[in-house]
Amino acid sequence: MMKGRVWSRSLAFMLLGSLMLGLAPAAVWAEAADRVGTALVEGGKALQVKVAAAVQDLKEEPWVDDPNKTETPQYYSFSGDQVLEERPDMGADRLGYASSYFSMNETSNIFPVAQKQMTLSWTDMLATWISEQEGTPKADRRPGIP
């Protein structure tokens, strides 16, 4: 008899427990899901900010000779022609120094790396102007120019 009551109580508690697990979780899980969802959204936003910041940093970071940063170029597609399809728009996004189609005509001097130095010279405008004022114009006083 006693055994039967204990068993009945256990069964009742199990039933009650099942009911609570079956009913209560609706609200509990909803709240939990909200919290997780909010956390995920917040985490996502934080991640977006981090990614945006990383991209911004990447764009501003000067290119350095580092094998870890070697990338497979994406802005040429291979058609078999000598110079394949050019996409300078992608090159501009890539950012190295200068854009992908920086015209060498815009530079008049290349630093001679082997010599480790170069002479930058300019017109001594003051001396030229003084000479002109004194009536003895000198067109150019750069070294090597008579």
Partner: peptide
Amino acid sequence: SWTTSPIRTAVA
């Protein structure tokens, strides 16, 4: 050869 000095090229 190029006069535009592309930063990356693929030559076939």
